[in-house]
């Protein structure tokens, strides 16, 4: 029962049919979409069940009532120490992504508004951070952090997340800033601005859109991260939210699916909220991804 089986006939049928009315396509699309979404159905149905209800009925059965959800939420929140996890991830995300985007903006300014030799090499240096899969950083970071006392520290996590989140925004902002006309800089210079002032008062205000888009993308990545938190934190007080979730899920004692699924949804709420509120910035960020 795989999604491949569902997708293929629909696509093939369309090709075979030749001229097809839009309406038929529309309803097919609706059907495909609904089938595609069944994990969400499962999740939604599960959070309204009690533990016993879940084991008694099947996993796909409709819940008896919506009442249990409050208890589920409270229990899941308590058991996963979600406040701590969310608080950490919020800190890592806001500071990490925010700092990274600012640093990237600085670097992009240096790469696009000033003339000197070897510009592209400096960019490659910064961008080389994204070329390799993260496995290659885990061991040295662990060792290095252990020796410098940054292991299991929030500061260490922020630093790592910031560093990882610098290259991609640099690429995006570099491309964006190179479109800003140079004579704005020149006018500002004649108005008496130092380079820093030009950056602060001219370039930055005109780069708001891409900066926000890229901040959201990086925040989301940090929020979703598991591995770096697993490797670089030891105590649960420093863990990211996903790390807490994973630990909870892997804990067999008394964790029924309804609790775990509730915890999962809770942990995902901020992502969904950000997305739906700021969809237009996200889609902008997406277009930027394809343009590299």
């Amino acid at each position: 029962m795989s999604e491949t089986a569902i997708g293929a006939p629909a696509a093939a049928e369309r090709r075979r049919a030749g001229r097809r009315s839009n309406r038929a396509v529309f309803w097919i699309a609706v059907a495909v979409t609904l089938l595609w979404l069944f994990p969400f159905y499962y999740a939604l149905v599960t959070i309204f069940k009690t533990g016993q209800e879940y084991t008694a009925g099947g996993p796909l059965a409709l819940p008896a009532s919506t009442a249990p959800v409050v208890a589920n939420i409270l229990e899941a929140w308590r058991r996963t120490h979600m406040l701590v996890g969310m608080g950490n991830s919020l800190l890592y995300g806001v500071v990490g992504a925010g700092l990274a985007v600012f640093v990237a903006a600085l670097a992009s300014y240096g790469l696009t508004r000033l003339d000197y030799r070897g510009r592209s090499y400096w960019f490659l240096l910064i961008f080389s951070g994204t070329i390799f899969p993260f496995q290659i950083y885990l061991i040295p970071l662990f060792q290095g952090f252990a020796r410098t006392g940054l292991l299991d520290s929030r500061l260490g996590m922020i630093l790592v997340y910031t560093a990882i989140c610098v290259p991609f925004p640099t690429l995006v902002l570099k491309n964006f800033m190179s479109q800003i006309p140079r004579d704005l800089d020149e006018a500002a210079r004649m108005d008496g601005c130092s380079e820093w002032r030009i950056f602060r008062s001219i370039i930055l205000p005109n780069s708001r859109g891409p900066m926000i888009a890229v901040f959201l993308l990086q925040f989301n990545w940090i929020w979703n991260d598991l591995i770096f938190s697993m490797v670089l934190t030891l105590d649960e007080s420093k863990r990211s939210i996903m790390n807490s979730l994973m630990v909870f899920q892997g804990n067999y004692a008394g964790t029924t699916p309804n609790l775990v699924v509730t915890a999962t949804l809770l942990a995902s709420v901020p992502t969904l909220v950000i997305f739906f509120l700021l969809r237009r910035y996200f889609m902008q960020g997406l277009a930027l991804q394809t343009s590299d």
Partner: peptide, 27 residues
């Protein structure tokens, strides 16, 4: 430039897009 006592009008005007006319002129 800023200490030369010169002011320049650019071909493309180079007005700061995020500032009002007043802010542009008094920057």
């Amino acid at each position: 430039s800023r200490d030369r006592g010169v002011a320049m009008v650019f071909q493309s005007y180079a007005l700061y897009p995020h500032m009002t006319v007043e802010e542009n002129m008094t920057f």
